[in-house]
Simulated assay, not measured.
Amino acid sequence: MSRRDEIIDVALRLFAERGYKATTITQIEAAAGLSPGAGGLYRHIGSKRELLVAAFDRVLDSRRAAQNMPRITDLDDPRIAISVAGRAVLAYVAADRDLYRLVLRGGDLPVDLSDVYQRLFQPGFDEVAGWLAQLAGDRPGFDATAVAAVALSSLFYFAISEFTYGCPPGHVEQERFLAAWTAGLLAQLGV
């Protein structure tokens, strides 16, 4: 990991904990092991806003890289594919925990959150809706877009509830949640 990436990680953690506006460059420098107030951060990145944009861009880059990995759609058994997909979404959210915490704080971010949504989240919903439509085939009345929205939203809420409140919804552990989530999605698909 580069020094720049380390600084982005530290800044993102502080933004998520304290809020974007409440976090100072001096605090970021201190937490990143730089001399506070000496301007060392600027050797690695141009501004506080650039730190935020770099954090979002890094997540987008990791999602693009994941698109080059073996596809879940290549799995023959829909039961396994759906279970793997659920675990993958939970892993994405866990890996980007501070980013999600920051976005949930909302309000004081100097970025257009609707643009962030369109770039960060909507492609995943579209991809899952297409995949579910493919799995459902010509099943009459199947609304892949709505089913994808419900399926992904429940996964996001599960993960976010764990790191926001310290426990999953209903105190249901992840394995039980994923089993129920998979069964519900398979029922929607008629599998």
Results as ranks from 00 to 15, higher is better:
93 V>L: 13
12 L>K: 11
123 P>T: 12
50 E>S: 15
108 D>V: 03
23 T>Y: 07
117 Y>R: 02
49 R>P: 09
92 Y>F: 09
174 Q>R: 14
27 Q>W: 04
40 G>T: 07
53 V>Y: 04
8 I>M: 08
96 D>A: 13
129 A>T: 12
183 A>E: 15
188 Q>V: 05
121 F>L: 15
176 R>S: 08
113 L>Y: 03
105 R>L: 13
138 D>Y: 10
99 L>N: 02
19 G>S: 08
162 E>W: 01
105 R>I: 11
56 F>H: 12
2 S>K: 13
154 S>C: 05
155 L>H: 03
119 R>A: 12
48 K>Q: 08
37 G>E: 09
131 W>Q: 15
135 L>C: 10
18 R>E: 14
6 E>C: 06
147 V>F: 01
116 V>C: 01
73 T>F: 01
35 S>V: 14
41 L>R: 02
159 A>K: 01
12 L>W: 07
85 A>T: 06
177 F>H: 10
106 G>N: 06
4 R>S: 11
88 A>E: 14
93 V>A: 10
19 G>P: 01
153 S>A: 11
180 A>D: 13
75 L>Q: 10
86 G>I: 09
175 E>T: 13
53 V>K: 01
142 F>S: 00
167 C>P: 00
67 Q>I: 03
127 E>I: 08
103 V>M: 06
45 I>K: 00
178 L>G: 06
52 L>D: 06
133 A>I: 11
77 D>Q: 06
161 S>N: 11
121 F>M: 13
74 D>R: 04
174 Q>L: 04
165 Y>V: 10
141 G>I: 05
170 G>S: 03
139 R>C: 05
44 H>N: 06
14 L>C: 09
31 A>I: 12
60 L>N: 03
150 V>L: 14
104 L>K: 09
111 V>A: 02
24 T>W: 06
146 A>Y: 01
13 R>N: 06
55 A>D: 02
49 R>Y: 02
173 E>T: 05
30 A>L: 13
158 F>E: 10
56 F>W: 08
43 R>H: 15
72 I>W: 00
141 G>Q: 08
103 V>A: 03
94 A>E: 11
116 V>F: 05
75 L>W: 00
140 P>S: 01
113 L>P: 00
185 L>H: 07
47 S>C: 10
79 R>Y: 07
183 A>Q: 11
79 R>G: 15
25 I>G: 14
136 A>Y: 05
42 Y>I: 15
133 A>R: 03
58 R>C: 04
122 Q>V: 09
61 D>M: 04
185 L>K: 01
77 D>R: 03
107 G>N: 11
81 A>G: 14
93 V>F: 00
66 A>C: 03
78 P>T: 07
178 L>P: 00
49 R>Q: 09
66 A>H: 03
75 L>K: 03
62 S>I: 06
83 S>V: 00
82 I>D: 10
68 N>D: 14
144 A>F: 02
20 Y>C: 08
183 A>G: 08
93 V>E: 10
68 N>P: 00
21 K>I: 07
113 L>C: 10
169 P>A: 07
